[in-house]
Amino acid sequence: MIPFLDLRRQYAGIADDLEASVLATLRSGQYVLGEPVECFEENFATYCGTRHAVAVSTGTSALQLALLTAGVGPGDEVITVPTTFVATVAAILYCGATPVLVDVDPETLTMDPAQCARAVTPRTKAILPVHFHGRLADMAALDAIAYANRLTLIEDSAQAHGARRDGQRAGSFGAMGCFSFYPGKNLGAAGEGGAVTTNDDGLASRLRALRDWGQLERGVHALRGYNYRMDAIQGAVLGVKLRHLDGWTAARRRIAGHYDAALAPEIRRPATSGPEDHVYHVYAIESEDRDALRRDLTDAGIGTNVHYMRPVHLQPAYADLANGPGSFPVAEAYAARTLSLPIFPELTGPEVEQVAAAVNALSERTHEPRERAIA
């Protein structure tokens, strides 16, 4: 059996350092925030190329606090995409604001800047692009739109730890960048975790207060805040894993390159515009007969996943955000076709070859066109 993801392999490679760091934290008697979290914040900020990283409890809380810190609230609109996990949209709703969805670019599957520009209204407060599957969105174009309209640009970088374009990393392009450290992420905790990166001292101060019950100083609750603090053990775990992130990213890129070379030409692969702008949190192909292909791969002992089977506007809880099927044809066509193949740093060369061979053999029956259908 080739698993879709095997975190036990990752653990085996760093077990001694990880256990030593966690044990030291347990012995310290300080289990919320504290030195391990502060150390991780400093190192992660340096890694991302920002002045600050504010560690929080989850990626969702990172999104919510970033939006609140940007002043987003009732009556405001935030432009984002339907091709994402529902947390992106949920965080906007948690602030009392209105998510305004725009379709994704058919090649990059990230926010279409032209559609974003058309969606701006006098109520728009922020733009929230998603670095989908680990590929950077068109941040130059989106930053220009934000600047021209005096909007806050916030990155959903939950899948893009370490992605870089022209020497600049995810989380440093916008006013704030939001990360998730869910265990399966490229940089994952031993549980839940998140962070917001920023170069703005004032935003960082507000973020730190909001995550800790609105305290600008201990015992003085200046803001109506939240209990979104990171546990010390998660900070300790992430501090160890951060040292390995670049190596893991290089391994993911090698595996993606192996897939690119081994898969049949007619199989649609992830798009990238540069050697460092994609960190392959997910390696997803497309198939006209996705569900059958997935069943066949399962029968062949190969684990797969679907990210995400329905775009947000077709999820029952968020159906009021659009006009139903057909509202975002690129997102909908992709959701119906996408299939995620195994990709994690410890996946072996023979395993990659086996997956690619099985996909090629099982895909022959569909004779798929190379161009993506969008309607």
Score class of each variant (00 low, 15 high):
Leu242Phe: 08
Val89Ser: 07
Arg268Lys: 02
Met111Tyr: 00
Thr152Glu: 12
Asn43Pro: 15
Ala97Arg: 03
Leu7Ile: 07
Leu341Phe: 10
Asp296Arg: 10
Arg253Val: 15
Arg337Ser: 12
Tyr259Arg: 00
Glu346Phe: 10
Leu67Tyr: 03
Ile14Phe: 01
Pro113Ser: 00
Ser157His: 00
Pro122Lys: 01
Gly191Trp: 02
Ala144Tyr: 04
Leu26Glu: 04
Leu339Met: 08
Asp17Arg: 03
Glu286Gln: 11
Gly188Tyr: 00
Glu371Tyr: 11
Val86Ile: 14
Val352Ala: 00
Asn43Ser: 15
Ile145Gln: 00
Gln30Arg: 13
Ile343Cys: 06
Arg229Leu: 10
Ser57Thr: 13
Ile343Phe: 04
Gly75Asp: 12
Thr110Ser: 03
Ala331Tyr: 13
Gly177Phe: 01
Thr80Ala: 10
Ile285Gln: 04
Met111Phe: 10
Val78Trp: 05
Val22Trp: 00
Val196Thr: 05
Glu155Tyr: 01
Leu33Glu: 15
Gly274Pro: 09
Pro325Val: 11
Ile14Trp: 06
Leu142Val: 02
Leu314Pro: 09
Val22Arg: 01
Asp6Ile: 09
Arg224Cys: 14
Gln168Asn: 06
Met139Trp: 00
Val104Leu: 00
Ala114Val: 10
Gln215Ile: 14
Ala317Gly: 11
Ala146Gly: 05
Glu77Cys: 13
Ala20Trp: 01
Arg224Pro: 15
Ala55Trp: 08
Leu68Trp: 03
His133Ser: 06
Leu297Thr: 08
Pro36Cys: 03
Val220Pro: 14
Val22Glu: 06
Tyr94Trp: 14
Asp16Tyr: 11
Pro265Glu: 05
Val312Tyr: 05
Ile255Thr: 13
Arg365Ala: 12
Ile374His: 08
Leu242Trp: 04
Gly73Tyr: 03
Ala114Asp: 11
His161Ala: 13
Asp143Lys: 06
Ala264Phe: 01
